[in-house]
């Protein structure tokens, strides 16, 4: 999926959460969206998902504004529990499969099995870490054209984190764009193709991990920390 962001701004009252953002994301790239809290990351993600409307500018996904079509092509993992915990894992698989034509049932079964998730149990009976794995499994079971993962490794232990990254790599589809928003940069660096660094509602860097490492001789994590000090 080609994602074009043009002169995008979002204002809340008199405050700009995002100001004049211009970006074009190509297909098949795994992109890191890096920035501190309040930088506009969440706003950008909500705009991409059509949860809020821009104040100015526009987003085009394969030439269309966020809407029913783009939602059918984007698989979104929010950074909170967003599933009805009264439902069983099986029922949730059923729900996803019903609404998303690109949902792959066998992939879902496989992922859930590998993650040792008891599918007949209600979500609320599972530990928080397991719930997050369920959410990730459902999102990654879709053969989507774009994946937007908001802090996918945030509340998980290191073993779980590693597993999640492995899942992201193994489900990688060269036609799909993957956007990973995170502040745990060092954990995901090796998986990223490109990084977008955002602060105070503006993009101040969009480059490939390779270029940055060659140019700066530093890890993205180190570079990010340094640059953040200056802004």
């Amino acid at each position: 999926m080609k994602i074009e962001i043009m002169n995008l701004s979002k204002k809340y009252g008199s405050l700009y959460a995002l100001q004049n953002v211009n970006l074009t994301l190509g297909q098949g790239r795994i992109v890191g969206l890096l920035g501190p809290n309040g930088s506009g990351k969440t706003t950008l993600i909500k705009l991409l998902n059509g949860l809020i409307q821009p104040t100015q500018g526009q987003i085009l996904m394969d030439g269309q504004k966020p809407g029913v079509y783009s939602k059918s092509k984007i698989s979104y993992l929010p950074d909170k529990t967003y599933l009805n915990s009264q439902m069983t894992v099986e029922q949730l698989v059923d729900l996803f499969g019903d609404f998303y034509a690109d949902f792959n049932f066998s992939k879902a079964d496989d992922l859930l099995k590998r993650l040792n998730i008891p599918v007949q149990q209600k979500l609320k009976t599972l530990s928080k870490g397991t719930q997050e794995k369920v959410q990730l499994a459902l999102v990654m079971s879709r053969e989507a054209e774009a994946y937007i993962l908001d802090e996918p490794i945030g509340g998980v232990d290191p073993v779980g984190r590693d597993y999640i990254l492995q899942t992201i790599i193994s489900q990688y589809n060269r036609n799909a764009t993957v956007i990973i928003s995170t502040h745990l940069i060092s954990d995901v660096e090796n998986v990223l193709d490109d990084v977008i660094m955002i602060k105070n509602g503006g993009i101040f860097l969009y480059d490939s991990v390779e270029n940055i490492r060659e140019r700066e001789g530093k890890s993205i994590d180190e570079m990010f920390k340094e640059v953040m000090r200056w802004y």
């Binding site: 795994i30 790599i169 193994s170 990688y172 060269r174 998986v191 990223l192 193709d193």
Partner: peptide, 14 residues
């Protein structure tokens, strides 16, 4: 490429 990328935990493009 994919198998090795998974083992190494790196981006398949890389």
């Amino acid at each position: 490429v994919r198998e090795l990328a998974e083992i190494a935990r790196v981006n398949p493009n890389t």
